[in-house]
Design a protein around this nucleic acid. Sequence first.
RNA 1: GGCGCCAUCGUCUAGUGGUUAGGACCCAGGAUUUUCAUUCCUGUAACCGGAGUUCGAUCCUCCGUGGCGCUACCA
Length: 476
Amino acid sequence: MSDIRVRFAPSPTGALHLGGARTAIYNWLFARANEGQFLLRIEDTDTKRSKKEYIEQIYESLRWLGMSWDEEPVFQSQRMAAYQQAAQELLQSGSAYYCFCTSEELEARRKASGVYQYDRKCRSLSETEINTHLNVGKKAAIRCNVPAGTTEWSDCVYGKISVNNDEIDDFILLRSNGFPTYQFAVVVDDIFMRISHVIRGEDHISNTPKQILLYKAFGAGIPEFAHLPLLNGTDGKRLSKRHGATGVDEYRDQGYPAEAVFNYLAILGWVPKDGNEILKPAELVQRFLLADIARKSAVFDLKKFDWVSNEHIKRMENAEICRHILPILIDNHLISAEPDESGRQYILKFIDLMKSRFRNFRQFAELGSYFFKDPETYEDKAVRKNWKETEVNRRMAILLDKLQQLEEFSAVSIESTVRELADELDISAGKLIHPLRLAVSGYSVGPGIFELLEFLGKETVLRRIQAALQRLPVSE
RNA sequence: GGCGCCAUCGUCUAGUGGUUAGGACCCAGGAUUUUCAUUCCUGUAACCGGAGUUCGAUCCUCCGUGGCGCUACCA
């Protein structure tokens, strides 16, 4: 399997979105699984919509996902001469012809006839007619001279697809302003880059016959094609802003681990044969098979993505999680700067206690803030349920007193204190535990309470209970 | 309008000419005599419709229907 060369070819008209990232991932997976080259091409021939800053943004997202590319990226905007030359070549061989029809004329004729395809008016122009037009400086586009017959290929994902050439328009290769169209530039570049497998979105299936015709016109070898089903939103429509975050960078900013995004996108529409769904990039490479990709468009499901992300966080080394959350903790003013060794140990333990519950790194700062500062508010629902009356204050005051007298503030001693008091008061331990958790964390859920109290330390715990005693219950 | 692709639980999917149609996420219930946003267990839930082929179709064929895509001097 030598000489496998694939490319990811984004247009810099926006940040890298989920669908594009998925295409890139499959290309990358295929290249790495087959000892091939993964190349990049920037399709910036649409000068109106392309922006420089997006290029860097796309690079950044690819790097963040852990995909490195081989060779220097190819920029279409720098290959104008090549397109001109290639067009001339097709003109010479008769595979293309000049078209002097203007957009307005075309539209008028389309409207009048009701026929969508180009009427091929300029196909039969004589050489003298062409020269006359050219000599007066008339603007000309160059169109593909589509031959009769059928065009077919065997798609790595979809199988055999065949199209009657009657259905194919004499599409434009070079616009009258000299810029190539997508169809043309893609083929010229894929030949130039010696691409062996074209792996791209399913929206290009209909374009493929045109491109195959071009390969033939150039007398070039035709690559393998693999089309990927598209990504949809929950309503089955094409993924867009109204479905929420669609940019890879947005997920990074929300604190999701890169491996989780990579993993979920990879298994969306493709499940490894062994049923293992939580996999690192290298493990995905081992299992990846183009032919196994489903042919149905898939819906990005945030719930499942969250699950995947949580699974990755659970498996991650505490030290690695620490690296990721340190800047977030600082940002949220939970710690002031790089912690010293004891601070670091504290954070590591905090991670160990909490990581099984979180789906992204930000939650460590949000849902875990009470490890670093006293709660400022108390979860409404929990207050209503566990601390709705002053009777709770009476009990907690007693508990506070008992805890204060504790010499050894350990999980074990705390637990027995709480349980003994519950016995004395003739109530269930939960009646003390729930308010206790609320006072200390502000939440109704969290890790084991006794372990948590020991971890936070006596001073902090007592202070927080006192504060809660003052503030709860909240009157309406 | 034309052409193309697709169609199994809500979602991602496995699968077969005869299966109790399997798994994962979600959801629901239960257990862990402290919680759940941890952990474990259990459960609900699907073959788009109609013909045809066949002893038998979720599976094969055809026709519908629906979704998506392409149909630009966008990519």
